[in-house]
Each structure stands twice: as structure tokens, then as C-alpha cells.
Design a protein around this nucleic acid. Structure first.
Lengths: 150, 150
DNA sequence: CGATGGAAGTTGCACATGCAACAAAAATCT
DNA sequence: AGATTTTTGTTGCATGTGCAACTTCCATCG
């Protein structure tokens, strides 16, 4: 199977790639300067925040936070140490750990978000009109909505 | 300064974020399955390939490959070990190292690109019309063209 | 039931990366 | 010229991450 990749599409990917790193690097730098945790913690806390009951199993969280199983184990170790989450044994399945966001976790999530949000606003949103943003979201939804398979 | 970040813009960022990781994760997995180096190597080799004379100084390469100075030192160590680049002392400035892409480096670059390209085509480009890609590139250029400052 | 197979998380290890401290060389200043 | 400052790249250390092997528990099948 020969994948077709016209120059226009390639150029779009390049721009997306650079945009992503531009925003993330700035945000990471600002988070560190502000003494806040990194975007990795944000992603994990945010996924928990969105989840029903503010908790997820390790497996689900790993997939949504884009980490490997082992990577997540260590991340959860750190989050637990900071009392941002709690590990709860699942009564129905002895293998499963429920990771539950604490109040302190929500608080930290908001602190990170304040900084992250500012970075997105300045490095990204400030350059886009309302129409731009709408188009962008519409087009990229086609990518994200598709099955991740190959 | 209060940064404004309307919901539309935020949604656009979220889609971009997920799109990026989707493509990169798949590409990384496929590169590893194919026994090829990672995207980090690709980025470095590609920047060298684009550069006039196919060489750059450590500083420039670090900035373009989005790595820290020390990170790049180690990366260049590995690339040199594989004979994909060569370190050349700069005759005009004793502090500077010119990093020069070798023929073998170009070859490896093409090998990585074949796999990477397929990933982009399937996970990204396949979902976009020509007009989508054009719009995407046009809009994101506004982001990438802006000064990275804050 | 007991045995086999599979799934969920955790650990050992290797490796890649960033920060801070450093060495060497150039630029600047007096 | 000599001293100070700046720039460029490299190293020590700490940290974060993935893969593979392992443990524990559940599911399935005889």
C-alpha cells in the first residue's frame, strides 16, 4: 500500500508540528518558572477531572494521558505522594486500582491551567480570528474523530 | 495582562494537541517496529539536510531540533557513533563545532522518512481534502510565523 | 472444582533528557 | 597587552520514560 501525501498536506503537518512545540515549550517554561507541575501532570489530572466520579482505572488513564503502563505507575506514585490523587482498590476486581482525584488535586489542576491557559492564549489564540479557530477545530476534528488504527 | 481565550480557540488547541500525539505515537511505534531511529533523530538529520552545506553549529541545531544544549550534545554523540554526522572544528572560531551530515546520514534520513511519511499519510492526510490542508497550513502559518516571544 | 490462559499493575533495567556547573575560546574594556 | 565578560559546547547528577519480566487476580475450559 502506497500512502499518498501531497505537498499541501505535508505542509499542513509541518505547521501543526511547529505550532504544537512552540506552544508547549513556552507553556512548560512558564510552568517551571511559576513553580507549577508540568503538562504531564496536567494531562493526567485533567483526564481524571473529566471522568465520571473523577476517577479512572490505571489502564484508562494511561491511554488517555498518552503514557505507557509503567510510566503511569510512576506518575501516579508521584501524584499520590503529593496527595493530588488517591489509589483505591476496586471491590469488584482485585486487580484494578481506581485512581481518584482529591480536592487538592483539583486545586493544583486549576493552578496549572491558569499558566497553561495564558500560554495558549498568547502563543496560539492571539494569532487566530474566531473564524480561524472554528475552521481549525472543524478540520482537525476529522483527524481526531477517525479511528487511531492503521 | 489578562489573556483572553475563547472556547472556540481552546477547542482548536485541544484538537491540535490530540492530532499531534495521535500521529506521532503511531509514527514512533512504526519506526520502532521497522527497526528505524526515532523522530528525534529524524528532526536533527532533517534540519542538517535542509541547512546550506548540510551542516549547522550545535547551537543552531539545538534550537531547530527543539532540544537543550546538553540534550543535543548527547544526541550528536550517538549520531556520530553511527557515522550519520561528523563533528568538524570551525577554523574561524575554536569554540564552535560544525555538525555535518554524511552520506550515510542522508540515507538513514530517507529510511526514516519513508516510515514517517506513511504514518502522516494514513493518520493525518487521509482525513483531509486538498482544501482542508490548504486552510490548515494557511491558518497555522499565522501561529508559526509569529515571534515565539511572550 | 483444578489447571490453563489472559488481564491489570508493579518493578528492574536501560536510556534519553534537562539543569547547573564547568572548560575553553572569543569579544570587550581599560 | 591583560583582565573581565560572554559565548559555545561538554559533563555530573537527577529525573522521567518505555520495554520486558514478574506478581496477582480474574476468566475460561476441561
Amino acid at each position: 500500500m502506497k500512502p499518498s501525501l501531497p505537498e499541501t498536506h505535508l505542509e499542513a503537518w509541518r505547521r501543526l508540528y511547529v505550532s504544537f512545540w512552540r506552544v508547549c515549550n513556552v507553556a512548560e517554561a512558564e510552568l517551571q518558572a511559576a513553580g507549577r507541575p508540568s503538562l504531564t501532570w496536567y494531562d493526567a489530572l485533567y483526564e481524571l477531572y473529566r471522568a465520571p466520579g473523577r476517577r479512572l482505572r490505571m489502564n484508562e488513564l494511561a491511554r488517555q494521558a498518552l503514557l505507557s503502563k509503567s510510566g503511569l505507575t510512576r506518575l501516579v506514585d508521584r501524584l499520590e505522594q503529593e496527595k493530588l490523587i488517591e489509589r483505591r482498590a476496586c471491590p469488584e476486581d482485585g486487580r484494578v486500582q481506581h485512581i481518584e482525584l482529591t480536592g487538592r488535586g483539583v486545586e493544583t489542576l486549576r493552578e496549572i491551567w491558569a499558566v497553561y491557559r495564558a500560554g495558549i492564549a498568547r502563543q496560539f489564540a492571539a494569532h487566530l480570528t474566531e473564524a480561524d479557530a472554528r475552521d481549525l477545530a472543524r478540520i482537525l476534528t476529522k483527524v481526531t474523530a477517525a479511528k487511531p488504527a492503521g
